[in-house]
Nucleic acid binder design. Structure first.
Length: 481
RNA sequence: CGGGGUGUAGCGCAGCUCGGUAGCGCACGUGCUUUGGGAGCAUGGGGUCGCAGGUUCAAAUCCUGUCACCCCGACCA
């Protein structure tokens, strides 16, 4: 057999190196994460894809609770008058709002927006609920879907309706609100690195790129394997901007009426897109162990031979008892070779093969999805060994992503270097801070400002990469999804 | 929104130029043989050709419109 030929399964997925976009589409469809819905721009998230989202929710929600937040549910419809209250906010979202204009057979007196985000609704309710400083802070979160009438869509990255969580909090002081804003960004960063195994750039957005109605927006930006940026989570500080418009006031300790300071923060099913584009390879998905709906797949080999299936079932039970998410693939309708490729496409982090030879020697054959490294483990103590291996897979995925990120992060001192850098990655540059330069950079390179790192100490240059005037900030630039 | 492409069986495609009984591979059903990297043979089932108009004795094929999806741009927290 010709060893240098590509294996047959490669024909089923467009090579990642050849066409990254098509590869992405092929992988999500073939791994059975989503399907296109009959509604324009909408997708159905299928069981395997939704399983990933459920695990994201579970991990994320525990972190929200641990930082003192409670879950609530707000309606999906927003009266037009409410949405129109904050001018900057409306301007930002108006072009992509879907409207309900009729109820049953009657035309509505006032149009209702299908929520593109819920700041205005939260504000309306907060203004009813807050009386005194004793009511503060209020720290709520909701898991829901929102709708934005996007012109061009891609599964998980940009769809008309998408699932997310939106946290909305109000505080007595600016200091508390800022602390909350940065705390939740930190929650997102920790989650991304430890649960998704994705390194991120955290920092503050420019005025141009900040959220409509926010005083300050912070983001985490992840680098995809084509070098483009994916905004993976945002945290906003509104100051008293919305409070003044919606009249959210409280009576302070010394008896004065004060406006509350408000924050909001969110992540969405876009994170699943980030997983795919960060870790995926030519064979398909490589899921981080903490988010894999199936962490270990067990393949009985020559399952018709006596004892094999029993032993495999026993192995599955042992691992399940140890708290692992296990699938025993005992299908007799497809060959072992087929199963190998299928589970690799679906990104299961660890595969255990159990055949007559393994059983005779009291061992199991393992294959790591991240490296495809193959070896043997004793059946004795297998649960512990499997758990250790899964942890190592997670660490290895992170290391690999981090190496890629570091190798594709460049320093630019002039426009030539910036232009070249954003072709394959992120560019760290000094910036004067003015909108004109940001626009010019986008015009010339199609790259946008991503965020300004918190550590501003290491300036690439003391003049702006674009206009040559004195530099004010270190900014990352990249092409973005 | 602009440029390019694609819609024919569950999936991948051919047929369209030049109108004349709907095809192929995979998958699926049944039987036997197989089983450690995408098994083999035999046999069988499945399609208002994206949708709507039009031309014609006759349309998957020609004409008009429309919808959806993919890629590249533009736009966009």
């Amino acid at each position: 057999m010709a060893k240098n030929k590509e294996p047959a399964f490669v024909e089923h997925i467009t090579p990642r190196s050849e066409d990254f976009s098509q590869w992405y589409t092929d992988v999500i469809l073939k791994a059975d994460l989503v399907d296109y819905a009959p509604v324009r721009g909408c997708m159905v998230i299928k069981p395997y894809g939704y399983g990933i989202w459920e695990l994201i929710q579970k991990e994320m929600d525990a972190r929200f609770k641990a930082t003192g937040h409670s879950n609530v549910y707000f309606p999906m419809l927003i009266p037009e008058s409410l949405l129109l209250k904050e001018a900057e906010h409306v301007e930002g979202f108006a072009p992509e709002v879907a409207w309900v204009t009729q109820g049953g057979t009657e035309k509505l007196q006032e149009r209702l927006a299908i929520r593109p985000t819920s700041e205005t609704l939260f504000c309306a309710m907060y203004s009813k609920w807050v009386q005194s400083w004793r009511d503060l802070p209020m720290k709520y979160n909701q898991w829901c879907s929102v709708m934005r009438w996007e012109k061009s869509t891609r599964p998980f990255l940009r769809t008309s309706e998408f699932l997310w969580q939106e946290g909305h909090t109000i505080h007595a002081t600016p200091e508390e609100a800022q602390e909350e804003t940065l705390l939740m960004l930190e929650v997102y960063r920790e989650f991304s690195e430890n649960v998704m195994n994705i390194p991120v750039f955290t920092g503050q957005k420019s005025d141009k790129e900040k959220f409509a109605g926010a005083r300050a927006t912070y983001s985490m930006e992840a680098m995809m394997q084509d070098g483009k940026a994916l905004q993976a989570g945002t945290s906003h500080n509104f100051g008293t901007n919305f409070a003044e418009v919606f009249d959210i006031q409280y009576l302070s300790k010394d008896g004065k009426l004060e406006y509350v300071h408000e924050t909001s923060w969110g992540v969405s099913t876009r994170l699943i897109g980030a997983l795919i584009m960060t870790h995926g390879d030519e064979r398909g998905l490589r899921l981080p162990p903490k988010l894999a709906p199936i962490q270990v797949v067990i393949l009985p080999i020559a399952a018709h031979k006596p004892g094999v299936l029993d032993k495999a079932t026993e192995l599955a039970k042992t691992l399940e008892a140890a708290g692992l998410r296990v699938e025993l693939d005992d299908r007799d309708t497809v060959s072992a070779g087929w199963k190998f490729n299928e589970w690799e496409l679906k990104g299961v982090p660890l595969r255990l093969e159990l055949g007559p030879r393994d059983i005779a020697q009291g061992q199991v054959t393992f294959v790591r999805r991240d490296t495809l490294e193959k070896g043997q483990l004793p059946l004795e103590g297998i649960a512990r060994a499997a758990r250790d291996l899964l942890e190592e897979v997670g660490r290895a995925l992170y290391r690999q992503a981090e190496e890629f990120k570091d190798a594709h992060t460049y320093i630019a001192r002039n426009m030539e270097e910036l232009t070249e850098g954003v072709q394959t990655g992120f560019v760290r540059a000094s910036w004067c801070g003015c909108r004109e330069c940001e626009d010019e950079i986008k015009e010339k390179t199609t790259a946008t400002s991503r965020n300004m790192p918190f550590d501003q100490s290491d300036m690439p240059s003391d003049v702006c990469v674009c206009c040559g005037k004195p530099a004010a900030k270190v900014m990352y630039f990249a092409k973005a999804y």
